[in-house]
Design a protein around this nucleic acid. Structure first.
Lengths: 206, 206
DNA sequence: CGTTAATCTAGAACAAGTTTCAGACTTGAT
DNA sequence: ATCAAGTCTGAAACTTGTTCTAGATTAACG
C-alpha cells in the first residue's frame, strides 16, 4: 500500500520543523482545553497562550475556532482509525460489525465527553468556509465504516446506507451530548440504522 | 380532541396581551432577519431594534440567540404541520408517505434557505440549557412523521425507525446547508432511511 | 555574512453575544 | 386612587471571536 504523506492537505506548502511543532502544540492545547470544558472552554486566547504562540499566528494556522476544532477532530479520528484497525470487529454480519465499531468509538468518546462535545459541535456548526475540512472528516468516517464492513467494492446502495449511518451517528451523538438521549438510546439508534446494511446487501436480496 | 393551549410551555405564567404582542414581534423580526442572511444575520441588537424592544427585554423573553432561533423554529414547525395536515401524502406504503412528507418539508425549506440555515444551525448547536426547547421541536417532528405514517399505535421498533429518520433528516439538512450535499443527495438519503419503516412494519415481517 | 521576503510577536482595536443598572412605566391589589 | 412588585427602556460594560499593525525574528539565497 502506497503510504500517503500522512493526512496533510494536498496542496499546502511544506512546513518547517518548527512550524510543524507549533501546529502540534496548538492542536494539543486545543484538545486539552476541550477535554476540560468542551466547546466553550476552547478560547482562542487561551489556546494561543497554552501553545506558546501569538494570537495572530494561531489564526494563521487555523482561520477560525471551528477550523481549529475540526482539525482537532481530524487528528483524533486518525488515532481512532489506527486503534480500530488493530482490533477489527468480530461480528458475524456486516451490520453487526459496523454497529460494534461505532459503539467502540462511542465508548472512546464517552471517556472524554467534553472533548467530544467540542469536536461534534464544531463539526455541525461549521459553515461553508469549513466545508473542505468537514468533508475530509466525513470521508475518514466513511473509510472507517467501510473498513469495518470488510467490503472491497460496495454497491451504490450500500454507500447510501453508509451515508445514512453517518447521519445517524452524528445526530445521535448530538442528542447524547446535549443530554436529550441516554447512552442506551444511542446504542439502539445505531443498531437500528445498521440494519440498513443488511437490507442493502447484494447477497440474498432482490 | 382536547385542544391544548396551542403550544406554549406548560409551566410558564400567562402573558398579557402586550407581552404576547412583543413576543410575536420578536419572533417575526427573528424570522425576517434569518431569511435575509441566515444565522449570522440574526443579530440580537438588530432583532431588538426591529421588534421595538429593548435589548434587555429581548433577553428576558429569550435567554440567548439560540433560544430565540429554536423558538423561531417551533413557530415555523407549527405552520408546517398545519400545512401538511391539509394535504396528507398519498403514497402507498408508510415509507413512501414519510419520504413524501419530508421531501415536501424540504422543498419548503429550500424556498427560504437562509431561514433554514439559521434554525437548523441553532438546533444542532444548542447546548444543555436549551434542551427542553429542542426536545419540544423533536417531539413536534416526531408527531409530523407519525402523522404521515398514519399509525395509531406504533411499535417500539417503529419508534426507533422514526428516531433514526429524524437523525438523518437533521444531519442531511446540515450537509445540504453547508454545501456538502446536493438536493438530489438529500432526497436519496431520505428515501434510503425511510426503508427502515418497511423493515419494521409489524405486518409481513418476523 | 547580508539582504529580502515571509513569518512571528505583542498588543490594540473591533464585532457581536450577553450582563448589568438606574430610572420610567404597567399591573394588580387594596 | 395609591402603593408595591414586577416589567420595560436606554445605555454602558463585559466577554470572547476575529482583525489589524508595527516591529522583531527566521528562512532562503546570493
Amino acid at each position: 500500500m502506497p503510504a500517503e504523506v500522512s493526512s496533510a492537505s494536498p496542496a499546502s506548502p511544506p512546513l518547517t520543523e518548527r512550524q510543524e511543532a507549533r501546529r502540534r502544540r496548538i492542536l494539543h492545547a486545543s484538545a486539552q482545553l476541550a477535554s476540560r470544558g468542551g466547546f466553550d472552554a476552547v478560547q482562542m486566547r487561551e489556546v494561543a497562550e497554552t501553545s506558546q504562540v501569538a494570537l495572530g499566528t494561531l489564526y494563521r494556522y487555523f482561520p477560525s475556532k471551528v477550523h481549529l476544532l475540526v482539525a482537532t477532530m481530524q487528528d483524533q479520528l486518525e488515532h481512532m482509525h489506527g486503534t480500530l484497525r488493530k482490533k477489527p470487529p468480530r461480528g458475524e454480519t456486516a451490520a453487526e460489525r459496523v454497529a460494534e465499531t461505532l459503539m467502540r468509538a462511542f465508548r472512546a468518546l464517552q471517556r472524554e465527553p467534553h472533548l467530544a462535545d467540542a469536536m461534534v459541535r464544531a463539526l455541525t456548526f461549521a459553515d461553508r468556509s469549513v466545508s473542505p475540512e468537514v468533508d475530509q472528516v466525513s470521508r475518514q468516517t466513511t473509510v472507517i465504516i467501510l473498513d469495518s464492513m470488510g467490503l472491497e467494492n460496495p454497491t451504490p446502495e450500500q454507500l447510501s446506507a453508509v451515508r445514512v449511518i453517518e447521519h445517524t451517528w452524528h445526530s445521535a451523538l448530538i442528542t447524547w451530548l446535549s443530554g436529550r438521549a441516554s447512552i442506551a438510546q444511542v446504542k439502539i439508534d445505531i443498531e437500528t440504522v445498521c440494519r440498513l446494511i443488511d437490507l442493502t446487501a447484494p447477497e440474498a436480496r432482490a
